[in-house]
Simulated scan of single mutants.
Amino acid sequence: MIAIYNQNLNDVLMFIVADNKGADLDFERKGNVAKVFRQDNGETVAWNIFEASKLFEIVGNGQVEISSEELSQVNSLISESGFDQVIPEDNDPKFVVGEIVELVPHADSDHLNIAQVKISEDETVQIVAGAPNARVGLKTIVALPGAIMPNGSLIFDGELRGVPSSGMMSSPRELALPNAPQKRGIIELSSDAVVGEKFDPAKHWQG
C-alpha cells in the first residue's frame, strides 16, 4: 500500500494497492470515495479519498504515512460509501538494509544477475539487477514492493527477462542522497549494518 496526498488537487488522498501492469483503468465513485480498477479483470488498483483533510490532519504532500487509526477511518468511509472492500494495513518499512547471499548470472542477459537478498532474519527475496558492484556479502538498501522512489517511480513485484524480481537494490542517486555519485552502482553499506533495519539516510549514508 502506497499513500499519496495532494493538498492542491482537490484535497485527494490516494492509496495505491496494486500494479495495473499497463492495463486500461476505469473508476467508480460514490460520494467522496472512488475505486480505481482494471478494465480487463476488475482488480482494484487504487482508492481516491476526496476532501481527505475532513477525516484527519495530513502532514505534507506526496507520499505520506498513515497510522492504523487513520486507515481505520478511511476504511469506515469506504464501507459507509457502499463499497464492500477495505484497504489492507501495511506499515512495514519499504526501504531496508539487505544482504546479497547469492548471485548468479541471468541466462538471457550479458549484464544482469539474479540475486538472493536477505531482508530479515527469516526472509530472502529474489531481485534481478544489473549493478556492476553487486557481490555476495554486500549489504545495501533494498526498495521493497510498495515503495515509492524519490523520482515518483513505484516499486512492485515484476519480471526482468522472464525472471521474477521482487524489489530493487538502490543506488545513492536513485535514493536522492546528498553528494550521490553520478554513476551506476548500488549503495554499499558497512559490514556491521543490520539486515532488515529501516533505511535511515543520517545513519546509513556519509556521502
Score class of each variant (00 low, 15 high):
E51V: 04
V33M: 03
N41M: 06
I119Y: 05
F37W: 01
A115F: 05
E159C: 02
R173P: 00
G31F: 14
E80W: 07
E102D: 13
N61H: 09
D157Q: 13
V136H: 04
Q39L: 13
A176H: 13
G42L: 04
A18I: 04
S81F: 09
S81G: 01
E102S: 14
V36P: 02
G82N: 10
D122V: 10
V136T: 12
S170I: 04
F50S: 04
P181I: 07
P132I: 02
P132T: 00
R135F: 07
S68M: 10
D11F: 07
N20M: 06
A46N: 02
E197H: 09
L55Y: 07
A129V: 08
G207K: 11
V195F: 07
V104H: 00
I114E: 07
S170L: 11
Q73V: 12
V101N: 05
I114S: 00
I2D: 02
H204M: 02
N75G: 09
L103R: 09
E89P: 05
D40C: 03
V101G: 00
E70Y: 05
F27R: 12
D90S: 12
M168S: 09
P105F: 03
A115E: 12
I78T: 02
L13T: 00
P93Y: 11
R173D: 12
A52F: 05
G98R: 09
R184L: 15
L71E: 11
V163Q: 05
G62A: 06
V194M: 08
I4A: 14
F37H: 10
E99V: 11
S53P: 01
K21N: 14
I58C: 08
F27G: 08
L144Y: 08
I148P: 02
W47G: 01
S190N: 13
A3H: 14
D90Y: 10
A18P: 01
G152H: 04
K183E: 15
Q73W: 08
E70T: 01
L9M: 12
P178V: 09
A131E: 02
R184I: 13
P181M: 03
L9R: 14
I49G: 05
S191I: 08
A129G: 13
V195I: 13
S67K: 01
A143C: 10
M149A: 13
E174M: 10
S153E: 14
G167D: 07
M14I: 07
S72E: 15
K54Y: 07
V12N: 01
S68G: 11
I148V: 15
K198Q: 14
N91V: 12
S67V: 04
V128H: 01
P150T: 03
R184A: 15
L177Y: 06
V17L: 14
K139S: 03
N8T: 13
L77G: 06
D24R: 07
E159L: 07
L9S: 13
P93I: 08
A3V: 02
A180I: 11
G42Y: 01
I187Y: 03
P105I: 06
T124M: 06
I148K: 13
P172C: 11
K54G: 11
E99K: 15
